[in-house]
């Protein structure tokens, strides 16, 4: 367990009377892809929202490199090295792909607001630097040809890649992917799985992946948590999960027709 990056302990979130996540425990080690699977409403996205700081857990703690980040703001968590994407794509209006990806570099700007007011040469130097870096990540998700097009006018599948590129541009250690396969067709899903695998190897990332589709999770993850109605009902390697009677009963039994 020497390389443990992320550890969550007894993570619980209640919305009013509804318990969305109940005592979730888990870890993520360096260079590891783990997945959380479960039907809709199982609390998968809620777990991701809590890790990325979108909302605070009701109880429980989150540690990143042994630092307690439970109450940190989302931007602070991003600065530490945890980036994420969204299930319902969240891009910015009237921005090109390049500009969208560049936003991830804003917080690294070495100059203050005052310097921009007086058009300090450092501003344009930084802009050129991050343009190069951003193009690198855009290239990595195969969007080089669309770099100058409006991000929101791209097809859905490509918009997903823009989100991934924006997350990569944060130069994270841990990448959280929220249902990256949602709304994609079979071919697109296959490409996506390839892409994630390539990024995982090339950038030596640690990835936490959420999906309700068995195929995506099973192909990528080396360890899987199974969520159902807010509770973690099982965990293990893909083979163990596939053969776990509890999982088959609770999840596959209902969802197999959809998969």
């Amino acid at each position: 367990m020497g390389n443990e990056l992320l550890r969550v302990e007894n993570l619980t979130k209640r919305f009013g009377g509804l318990c969305a996540v109940d005592c979730f425990c888990g870890t993520l080690e360096a260079n590891q892809i783990k997945g959380i699977i479960g039907p809709n409403g199982a609390g998968k996205t809620t777990i991701l929202n809590m890790i990325s700081g979108v909302y605070p857990p009701t109880t429980g703690q989150i540690f990143y490199k042994d630092q307690d980040i439970t109450k940190f703001q989302p931007h602070k968590i991003n600065h530490l090295g945890i980036a994420r994407t969204f299930q319902n794509i969240r891009l910015f209006q009237n921005m090109t792909v390049l500009e969208t990806v560049k936003t991830a570099y804003s917080w690294r700007a070495p100059y203050s607001a005052i310097e921009t007011l007086f058009s300090s040469p450092r501003v344009q130097k930084f802009e050129r630097e991050i343009e190069e870096k951003s193009m690198h990540f855009i290239d990595m998700v195969n969007l080089k040809d669309c770099a100058k097009s409006n991000a929101q006018s791209l097809p859905y599948g490509l918009q997903r890649r823009v989100e991934i590129a924006r997350a990569l541009a944060s130069e994270p250690t841990v990448l959280l992917l929220d249902e990256p396969g949602a709304g994609l067709n079979q071919t697109e899903v296959r490409d996506l799985v390839e892409l994630i695998r390539r990024l995982f190897i090339d950038l030596s990332l640690s990835i936490l992946l959420i999906d309700h589709r068995m195929d995506v999770i099973m192909q990528l993850c080396e360890w899987i948590y199974v969520q159902d109605f807010g509770e973690c009902i099982s965990q293990g390697t893909p083979e163990q999960i596939q053969n776990d009677p509890i999982v088959i009963k609770a999840y596959l039994g209902e969802e197999i027709n959809n998969a």
């Binding site: 991003n78 969240r90 910015f92 209006q93 009237n94 936003t103 991830a104």
Partner: peptide, 16 residues
């Protein structure tokens, strides 16, 4: 522009 169009995504992209 990012904050104006999607504040949450802007936060998650590291913008304070």
């Amino acid at each position: 522009l990012a904050i104006r169009s999607n504040e949450l995504a802007a936060k998650v992209a590291g913008i304070n």
